[in-house]
């Protein structure tokens, strides 16, 4: 009985984390999937969101800025606004860069954010991070606080999914994919490509900021290491690519799937003898890479394909698998 209860709690925790990663992946999907913006700085917007919400919602403390004790909802809203504002500044500088250059620029900026968070002790408590971040529903009795948090994350993912799905099928999504497919032609079709790219970048970053805030409240702690490129940027990219770029369901499925692999392998590696455990940590990255290979061999465009407008339902004889 005890064991089943443990598995239940673990599953709740796993799904909550998967849901939070789904928020991050949906954010990246707006930028990369819809619009083709190669943002390699997911971790940066994650961190901005997490720290913003943490500083606003914790109790007063001399260790870091803020400590206003605001409710978590206000913190999350502020996290989105902060990420959006920073994204606006970044986009003003970088948005004209072509994909690979944009990737390098955003990767660099995310690292700068991380190092600032790590070194500005007076504002962020440096490498020790911010703890005692309030968690929604934490006053409920033991399993129910976790379940309530899961439901909250689930609801947020659902609302985001609804909004983004609508946006993608609307002319807004169409013009974003037109930019992704051929920028010169989008310009020739009268679209203000710069403005639209900035819009997608900001929206994506705001969603990532929300993901960061959720993570901070869920873990109740945030430090600069959580904004490492591997755990925040790389993992989110793998989730989107595996699930299927430009498909919101794919983003969600990819997030839950990859987080499950990432997380359950930890169970195995932590039970290994000490001298193996350290090496085994790298095994996780290897396993995620292997999963990526395996899935992309089978589904070249990710598990879910991008959906486009069809005037007639495609015949059921549509060829699966191979490239068009």
């Amino acid at each position: 009985m005890e064991q089943i209860y443990g598995i239940f709690l673990y599953t709740v925790f796993l799904l909550t984390m998967g849901g939070i990663y789904a928020v991050l992946t949906l954010g990246l999907n707006i930028q990369w999937g819809f619009t083709g913006l190669f943002n390699a700085g997911v971790a940066g917007f994650f961190a901005i969101g997490a720290y913003t919400s943490a500083m606003l919602t914790t109790a007063a403390s001399h260790r870091h800025l803020g400590g206003l004790g605001l409710p978590a909802g206000a913190g999350m809203a502020a996290a989105m606004v902060a990420s959006a504002l920073i994204a606006w500044g970044v986009a003003r500088i970088c948005i004209r860069l072509r994909s690979d250059y944009l990737a390098i620029a955003t990767l660099g900026l995310a690292e700068i954010f991380r190092l600032v968070l790590k070194n500005e002790n007076w504002a962020t408590n440096g490498a020790r991070g911010i703890s005692l971040i309030p968690k929604p529903f934490e006053h409920l009795p033991e399993p129910w606080n976790q379940v309530a948090m899961l439901l909250l994350v689930f609801a947020i993912v659902l609302v985001l999914y609804g909004l983004l799905e609508r946006a993608q099928r609307a002319p807004w999504g169409r013009v974003m994919s037109a930019i992704r497919e051929n920028e010169a032609a989008a310009r020739a079709a009268g679209k203000d490509v710069e403005r639209l790219r900035i819009e997608a970048f900001i929206l994506g970053a705001a969603v990532m900021g929300l993901g960061g805030a959720l993570m901070a409240h869920h873990i109740k702690f945030i430090d600069p290491n959580m904004a490492e490129p591997v755990s925040a940027t790389f993992l989110v990219w793998v989730m989107l690519v595996i699930g299927g770029s430009a498909n919101n369901r794919g983003a969600i499925l990819g997030a839950v799937l990859v987080w499950t692999i990432w997380s359950t392998t930890e169970i195995i590696t932590t039970r290994l003898p000490a001298e193996w455990a350290l090496k085994a940590a790298y095994l996780r990255i290897f396993l995620v890479g292997l999963a990526l290979q395996f899935i992309l061999q089978r589904y070249p465009g990710g598990i879910f394909r991008e959906r486009r407008l069809r005037t007639v339902a495609p015949p059921s004889s549509q060829k699966g698998g191979s490239h068009p």
Partner: peptide, 8 residues
């Protein structure tokens, strides 16, 4: 031709 390749 500058078509939007993965649009219909």
């Amino acid at each position: 031709p500058h078509e939007f390749g993965r649009l219909t």
